[in-house]
Write a protein that binds this DNA or RNA. Sequence first.
DNA 1: CTGAAAGCGCTTACAG
DNA 2: CTGAAAGCGCTTACAG
Lengths: 328, 328
Amino acid sequence: MSPSTVSRVLTGVGYVSAATKEKVLKAVDELGYNPNGVARSLKRAKTQTIGVIVPDISNPYFVRVVRSIENCVSKSDYNLLLCSTDDNASKEETFLRILRERRIDGLIFAPSRLELGSALKPFLDANIPVVLVDRTITDVEVDTVVEEGEQSSYRLVQSLIEMGHERIAIVNSKPYISTSIERQRGYERAMLDAGIPIRPQYIQHGRFDQETGYLCGKRLFTLKDDRPTAIFATNNSILYGLMLAARELLIRIPEDISLVSFGDLEYSELIFPRVTAILQHPDRVGTTAAEVLLARLNHTHVEEVQKTRRIVLPTDFRCGTSVRNLRD
Amino acid sequence: MSPSTVSRVLTGVGYVSAATKEKVLKAVDELGYNPNGVARSLKRAKTQTIGVIVPDISNPYFVRVVRSIENCVSKSDYNLLLCSTDDNASKEETFLRILRERRIDGLIFAPSRLELGSALKPFLDANIPVVLVDRTITDVEVDTVVEEGEQSSYRLVQSLIEMGHERIAIVNSKPYISTSIERQRGYERAMLDAGIPIRPQYIQHGRFDQETGYLCGKRLFTLKDDRPTAIFATNNSILYGLMLAARELLIRIPEDISLVSFGDLEYSELIFPRVTAILQHPDRVGTTAAEVLLARLNHTHVEEVQKTRRIVLPTDFRCGTSVRNLRD
DNA sequence: CTGAAAGCGCTTACAG
DNA sequence: CTGAAAGCGCTTACAG
């Protein structure tokens, strides 16, 4: 029996008589033959692999993004090669290089900075579809699925202002991450529109992690003269850190200080107080990104090259009990 | 310039003159050459890939297991191919087959049932190291890293009994998952040792998920005659579901019913009441499993074949405020 | 319907 | 120190 025949049986492509087919399958079963997918990938120039690069797979937000990507692409026989960058540019570059070498068929990527330079070039040159999630970049045109950030933040801060807050602090990540920038902009614009001056000491920058929330929280909570009456946490991890700091310093929310956040905590139903927050939809982000990518993957043959898509998903506003009404 | 020379420069193996080396590197840079890892994998019969199969990547426990595996193996240049089975046996088999075809170098796997039959055979026949995490199997000898289950559960239930509880229910997963079995055994032995009869209606089986906790919670909370005074949640998701059900039915913990659990909720510092629980150490589980796997991967050449390792990591007991003392 | 042949892009002894 | 050749295990036109 020739390799060609076996291949035809196993791939189901080409003519094979029922008799040989059966013989082949029997032999496969008896010998415990298992086809070599690496050789197949080399020949077909397709690996059935999608690379996923996120800042941190242990952040519940990205967990859900990744999970919905997996659900989506596994139906089309793709597997996920997963990488966490910790928002570290050099790790990020390494992963991009490795994934390119591994000849992934597509990439879903939450970039750590607004300008990637040539980091994505190998993929674009090789015509490998890339979809950015959660965060965008400015120097390359590429499909993107993000959640609305500036207007949502504006609304969130506005809700504080409406309750009479003026001393509003913000704890944010780096000024070169798109989500960080947009949320900052929403904050600043809301303050500006209300004619409230922004005090430099109220603007805290760190990382999108719990430690930043904790440390900045301690700093803000213990300001001598002009302690803020409210704090805007720009993501779930920062919010968590802030709440830990508040708990430790016996600062009550909202009695002593008000809190709002972009993105919600896991298990928020069990956490008191319910934080007034912008609700994100990581499942939708992941699913949409996967769909955009699959569409590209299925249309590479056809010369129907689609335009770059930039999808901005809407968020929701949830009014909680973490904001004190200063106008009472 | 021959491919052999280029290869020698890029892999750093073999003799190359400094001059040609430089020329090669320059050309690589200018042409944007990116080596094909698939071809390399085929030739070397090594893919630098570790397959990870868990029931659910969105469960915080497995999130942390996976993250620590990634941290560990990425230092040795391995990438992770990630799969969620939803504890579905057929998905599990498919993933095992796919990962075998993809020629992963090693597998870290939380099996969905105690007896896998021949599902792992292709890996063992091909001498590909497999490490089980969190859960064990009975029909194949293979490296395993789990957390102590029976004695921990015994202690947990005992702590209820010491507070005067006798009507103790358990909400558990399937009787063919090793963790489920062990936790059940701990429960039953604690009851037996205390001479407390086990009532069938107090033993609820579902899945290790939030829905099971929620539905069984509702069922137990609304029992007419003999509502339990305490419930043992056998994992974090079940605990979460139980707490949601309690919240919905306005059942106070511990005033109306006591709660203990195997494994803790994320953000438990912010959740009231603090649940008396067995604390697990997913980071340790992931790291240990990765180390065991890496040890195997590094010793395949040497004929120093190690014995199968079965590592049982200790848990911790945390006394919370979710148990009412009936002896007061 | 089946098989021989070429080739995917590397690596690795081997010869020079 | 460098290059020619073989081969990893498939798939895919092509010939028969």
